[in-house]
Simulated assay, not measured.
Amino acid sequence: MQVLRKLLFPISLIYGLIVFLRNRLYDWGIFSSKSFDTKTICVGNLSVGGTGKTPMIELLVRELSEKFDVAILSRGYKRKSEGFLLSDEQTSVEDLGDEPFQLKSKFPKVTVAVDADRRNGIGQLEQKINADVILLDDAFQHRKVKAGLSILLTAHDNLYTKDWYLPTGDLRDSKREACRANLIVVTKCPANLSSSEKDKIRASIDPKFHQKVLFSYLSYNKELKGSGLSLDALKGKKVTLVTGIANPAPLVKFLISEGITFEHLKYNDHHFFTDQEIELLKEKECILTTEKDYVRLKSKITGLHYIEVKHEFFENDRELLKKELLQFMTTIS
């Protein structure tokens, strides 16, 4: 696969040129970016693949929802509905897509909507509800909307500063667009990341005067959801790990470190399971999966276990994030 990606380098040059021209057209005002009356916070990345956007949205909901009315707007990737859709109690995972459905299930009091056209989606939300802030999931590259606060995520093991354009690399947007972010969060760091390593990464990112670089790592809940069992209870069982996420490597590494023996059935990100695949999974003795996969499987398979994951920040970075959020929410536009 790596050889093929290198052979496709000429295509990546064309892709990079298209991305460059598109961004310049926005910079020059030929394409317009629209701001909205409602405060907006964008969470996104420059690359394809998992940087932890959904856990970051969850963290923002927890931080903001105690004092503010929060709404979430997502594209709803691979959903079976079209246009703008405001979720309610009858909305299914097929209607919303797995990640928005996961968010709605976890935060039932928070408004969750989907629309591939973020500008239209925000407009619809402003007409239908009175939110204090709209969280834009995976919208950093959607320049039709000018967010009030932008949070750019980059994974520790695949920093955008060391990446290249698709299809040779994983970049879907230009590295120089990182300058539009207010906060740059390096996610999926080793829990023992040293201060010197952080300094090297900061130097590589070279933040602008208006930017702050934060560091986070993934924390897995050893009390499994969906079953009430602890992770230790799976030791000695014939465990099948089922993942349909962009990058399951951190989860796999964690389970191995915890002494869990398992077979791994790896599917593409946002995979909707076929009837044949469901029948195969029903034959498994013990299935452990991710929360995103759980919302797609729970109505089809009984006895599922899923492991919850969240971002934890190093040292004072969590307090710094809280301070930035509060300052943004209390500043009059």
Rank of each mutant, 00 (worst) to 15 (best):
K6M: 12
F9D: 07
F9Q: 12
I14C: 13
G16V: 00
G16M: 00
I18G: 09
Y26W: 04
S32G: 00
D37C: 08
T38V: 15
K39S: 06
C42V: 03
C42K: 05
V43Q: 15
L46M: 08
V48T: 06
T51M: 00
K53F: 07
K53Q: 05
P55M: 02
M56P: 03
E58Y: 08
L59A: 12
L60Y: 09
V61H: 13
F68R: 15
I72R: 13
L73T: 08
L73R: 04
L73G: 09
G76N: 09
Y77S: 06
K78T: 05
K78V: 05
K78H: 10
S81N: 10
E82H: 12
G83Y: 04
G83Q: 01
F84L: 05
S87I: 14
Q90V: 10
Q90I: 10
E94D: 15
L96G: 09
D98G: 05
D98M: 03
L103H: 08
S105D: 09
K106E: 07
F107T: 13
K109H: 14
V110T: 05
V110A: 01
A113C: 08
D117C: 03
R119I: 10
E126R: 13
Q127W: 02
D132R: 06
L135D: 09
L136A: 13
F140I: 02
K144R: 08
G148I: 07
S150H: 02
S150K: 01
L152F: 14
L153C: 08
T154W: 01
T154G: 02
H156R: 07
T161G: 06
L166H: 10
L166Q: 03
D170Q: 15
E177I: 12
R180N: 05
A181N: 07
V186T: 09
C189S: 08
C189V: 04
P190Q: 02
S196A: 12
E197G: 01
I201M: 03
A203Q: 14
A203S: 14
S204P: 04
S204I: 01
D206Y: 08
P207D: 07
H210C: 10
K212G: 03
Y220Q: 09
E223D: 10
L224G: 03
S227T: 13
L229I: 11
S230N: 15
L234D: 05
K235W: 06
K238Y: 12
T240C: 14
V242C: 07
T243A: 01
T243F: 00
G244N: 12
N247Y: 11
P248G: 04
S257V: 01
E258G: 12
E258I: 15
I260P: 01
T261K: 15
L265F: 15
L265S: 15
F272R: 10
F273K: 13
E277G: 11
L280I: 09
K282V: 07
K282Q: 10
K282C: 06
E285C: 11
C286Y: 11
C286T: 14
L288D: 02
D293I: 01
D293E: 02
Y294H: 00
R296H: 06
L297A: 03
S299Q: 13
S299V: 11
K300E: 12
I301C: 04
I301N: 05
L304N: 11
H305A: 05
K323V: 05
L325F: 05
L326V: 15
L326R: 15
L326C: 12
Q327F: 00
M329Y: 02
S333L: 11
